[in-house]
Design a protein around this nucleic acid. Structure first.
Length: 875
DNA sequence: GAGCACTGC
């Protein structure tokens, strides 16, 4: 791509040949791995791992204690029956199913277990020894359990094995079932309960005694060097460097906690990869991660952040000329490509958390793969969690995979015995069950959105209040992205002694936030997902079942500080048969206008054949290209025009970029840039607490201006700026300060870029016509006209849409509107709509609209309604 | 009279 401009055919042929040679050599290297010294290195690493495992076996049988501990919680007598029942269930449920080989094996294995179990039972009856009792409810730690089996000292391997196998079918009941060893008061507490079945657990990788969790104090006492050496990746340092030297692309498979993100760039630095003024880059999907990891590495290397080690994220470039290790968000690297398409200043690029498959990382895969062909000296590291590594490997021409173990405690997975109809209620019941019967340790509940969280919070606090002093203190804390920051921060406050914290969270807690001390996870198995329909141009936010990968990520949240438990509010059958393996990658679910513009700006003309790991739907690409063409960003050869090149300078969707550039002509760039910034902060401007809805709505309506929502947004920004960007002002007007601050950041960035493309920033006070014309110049694709009974039809797709009830035009119903986006929630809504005149369309987009289609005659049958407000229509 | 999952440039 870098050489598309100005290169002759000859050049291109030479380059292709060179690339082909490289590819061939890479392939050979990959194949050679089976015989080369690398293989030896890998084998040695494997051997070492195995040795570790054996040592662990010898040292302290912690593993055994752990599993015994779990076992203690169950009633022995129930188990055989349960196994029997399980086999029957299995045969009943899956009788008609075609069983895979593995499932058949599983079934026969279970039968065998049952036989063994029965024999064992007989033997036990002879002995008549009560060997176990229930764990006592320990106050401070979940790890303190009484070990009472005196025969533990002389372990019987086969018996142990049987017991462990047994776990996979044990039924786990809370509360009243186990009356003898359970506190009696709890029998009265729980009026309903849910039966959970324990299935296989996610094995931990952190069970060795020396890897027991440390208190914060202990952690602080550890020197940086000790900490570095204690990380799983440390043992692989030399092998890793050798592998990177031998291969251009390496897939690194390692779970969280392996230390790969902080250590590998340092190893590369030590190994001399930053000679010749080259940098080591590492991308992260999230801003906080990029910042905090860079800070940590700077500390470890004893340098000032921003010097040798730095980070670069939007609005904040904390790097200098001395920087050799640079952390950044994937989107930042994306934009860096525009100024440095061959990444010449980097010797290594590490794409971290690749398994998250964000839109940006997915695009980066294709870009770096392409570059690697022309830059044999550039090393690529793709780091991913388990499962996906193979897929990445085959995408990168069978690049070798380097595995690093992670650090996580085992998590037991429980499923419900039967499906739960109302999962909010099931959540509440489960929380109370855990609270009443389980050792202390905080609970994390995954819900889909703010509304659910609020409902759950209400029901739960009501139930807890009624229980009074019969249960210990339960702190209920909500967390979701739109919650004001000070309320969000509460989840990080330590739980008071003797109390338990329950965090009701959205997907934000799946990857973005990590809460310490979570032992229990409750997962109803749903999340809200955004889907873009390129046929209608409509986004929809719908509740969908999570994927298996997502469910496991959620479960993993219980195993960060100690062994944990995850309660899934669905059946094992549902997990196996109804959940997808992986979440559909973002690139297949979103509007790609922005991405296509950027790729075009990089000179990639054949997008349909761009090397995507998972290609987006064809229609989405077509729609994006079509829109860019209509906006004037592409000529009819599909090449970027001068306007398109200017649009690509801005980190905005094509339509918004066009609006911004058009504002120059209408002398209102000052207003339009505020509107663009406000639109960018995604409808999170108003704060509407449930108990002050009326006040909040009144405050919102005070900002209304004739003309529509875009002008309202501009008005809000202007008033806030006039208040000297005051927090108090936001508070008084039920405006979210965080969103406004973000809008200000975006605005400042845009103003900077406008200056760069030599745009004048001028105001055209009060001329709302000019402002709305500029908006229309960008959004002439998004026009709707009034149809019957207060509904609208889009001009483009003739689709029925409505004005959003929060819109300032909701009571107005103008004839023609331009809207920012279509969203399907309960109905098809236009969000952020402004009134326009149809003749403007002929002015701003004469190539796109013909006078005839803008005549009101087609609308004659509804013309009697036109000009009437909603109020008048009702009467 | 409805509702805003989560990131990122």
């Amino acid at each position: 791509m870098s050489s598309d401009s100005g290169s002759s055919d000859e050049d291109r042929r030479a380059r292709d040949e060179f690339a082909a040679r490289l590819r061939k050599r890479d392939k050979e290297k990959t194949r050679n791995i089976a015989t080369s010294s690398d293989k030896k290195a890998f084998e040695e690493a494997a051997k070492r791992l195995k040795l570790d495992a054996e040592n662990q076996e010898k040292l302290i049988p912690r593993l055994r204690i752990e599993s015994r501990r779990k076992y203690l919680e169950k009633r022995k007598e129930d188990k055989v029956q349960e196994l029997e029942a399980d086999i029957l269930d299995d045969e009943y449920l899956f009788a008609d199913e075609e069983l895979t080989e593995r499932e058949k094996k599983e079934r026969s294995h279970k039968r065998k277990l049952l036989e063994l179990a029965k024999e064992h039972e007989k033997a036990r009856e002879l002995e008549r020894v009560q060997r176990y009792h229930m764990p006592r409810d320990v106050k401070d730690s979940v790890n303190e359990y009484e070990e009472v089996d005196d025969r533990e000292k002389k372990p019987n391997y086969e018996q142990k094995k049987w017991e462990e196998e047994q776990m996979s079918s044990a039924v786990f009941r809370f509360g009243a079932k186990n009356k003898e060893s359970q506190d009696r008061e709890y029998d009265l507490v729980l009026d309903s309960q849910i039966d959970f079945i324990r299935a296989l657990s996610m094995p931990g990788t952190k069970e060795k005694p020396e890897e027991r969790p440390m208190t914060e104090k202990q952690k602080k006492r550890m020197t940086i060097e000790e900490t570095q050496k204690s990380l799983p990746v440390y043992k692989f340092k030399d092998d890793l460097i050798a592998a990177i030297q031998a291969h251009q692309v390496l897939i690194i498979e390692g779970e969280t906690g392996s230390g790969k993100t902080t250590q590998i760039p340092q190893y590369l630095y030590q190994a001399g990869f930053t000679k010749d003024n080259k940098k080591i880059g590492c991308t992260q999907p999230r801003r906080v991660a990029a910042m905090s990891v860079a800070a940590r590495v700077a500390e470890e290397m004893n340098v000032k952040l921003g010097n040798e080690v730095g980070y670069s994220i939007r609005f904040e470039d904390c790097t200098s000329e001395r920087t050799v290790i640079k952390y950044m968000t994937d989107g930042t690297l994306h934009r860096e490509f525009l100024s440095e398409p061959d990444l010449l200043s980097y010797s290594v690029m590490m794409i971290d958390e690749a398994h998250e498959r964000t839109l940006h990382t997915d695009i980066l895969f294709g870009l770096v793969k392409d570059i690697a062909r022309f830059r044999p000296d550039l090393k690529l590291l793709i780091s991913s969690a388990t499962l996906d590594a193979e897929k990445f490997s085959s995408f990168f021409d069978d690049a070798p995979i380097f595995r690093i173990p992670g650090r996580r405690f085992p998590v037991d997975i429980y499923y419900t015995k039967a499906p739960e109809a109302d999962y909010i209620d099931a959540c509440v019941v489960s929380i109370l069950q855990i609270h009443a019967t389980q050792p202390l340790g905080d609970i994390l509940v995954f819900l889909t959105g703010q509304e659910e969280i609020e409902t759950c919070q209400e029901i739960l606090s009501d139930r807890v209040r009624r229980l009074g002093t019969r249960v210990k203190e339960l702190l209920i804390l909500p967390v979701y992205a739109n919650l004001p920051s000070d309320l969000q921060a509460k989840i990080f406050e330590p739980t008071p002694p003797g109390a338990r914290k329950v965090v009701l969270a959205t997907n934000i807690a799946e990857t973005s936030l990590t809460i310490d001390n979570i032992i229990y996870v409750i997962d109803p198995g749903f999340c809200k997902q955004n889907n873009f329909n390129s046929r209608t141009g409509m986004e929809s936010l719908v509740v969908v079942p999570v994927s298996k990968a997502s469910a496991n990520q959620r479960a993993g949240r219980a195993g960060r500080v100690a062994a944990g438990k995850c309660f899934r509010l669905y059946t094992a059958w549902a997990y196996k048969h109804e959940l997808e393996d992986n979440t559909v990658p973002e690139i297949q679910r979103v509007n790609l206008g922005n991405v296509v513009l950027m790729l075009k700006a990089l000179g990639i003309n054949d997008l349909v054949h761009f090397d995507f790991l998972d290609p987006p739907p064809h229609e989405t690409l077509v729609l994006a290209l079509e829109q860019l063409y209509a906006l004037g960003a592409l000529n009819h050869h599909g090449e970027l025009t001068k306007l398109g090149r200017r649009m690509a300078e801005f980190p905005l969707d094509p339509m918004m970029g066009k609006m911004l550039l058009a504002s120059e002509k209408y002398k209102c760039s000052e207003e339009i840039v505020s509107i663009a910034a406000m639109l960018s902060v995604n409808s999170a401007i108003f704060y509407r607490p449930k108990d002050k809805l009326v006040h909040a709505d009144t405050a919102r309506k005070n900002f209304f201006l004739p003309g529509g929502d875009h002008l309202v947004l501009c008005n809000i920004y202007k008033q806030w700026a006039d208040s000297d960007y005051s927090t108090q002002w936001c508070y008084e007007n039920y405006i979210q300060y965080r969103s406004m601050k973000r809008a200000r950041d975006v605005r400042e960035q845009l103003v900077g870029l406008m200056e760069r493309v030599e745009m004048e920033i001028v105001s055209n006070h009060g001329d709302t016509v000019a402002i709305r014309k500029a908006i229309t110049a960008g959004y002439f694709y998004h026009i709707a006209r009034l149809s019957k009974a207060g509904s609208y039809k889009t001009v483009k797709h003739n689709q029925t849409v409505m004005i959003h009830p929060n819109s300032s035009l909701f009571e107005e119903l103008p004839r023609w509107v331009v809207y920012y986006e279509l969203v399907f929630t309960t109905k098809e809504y236009m969000r952020q709509a402004s009134e326009i005149e149809s003749k403007w369309l002929l002015e701003v987009a004469p190539h796109y609209y013909k006078p005839k289609e803008l005549e009101d005659s087609t609308n004659m049958k509804f013309s009697k309604n036109i000009g009437k407000t909603r109020e008048e229509l009702r009467t």
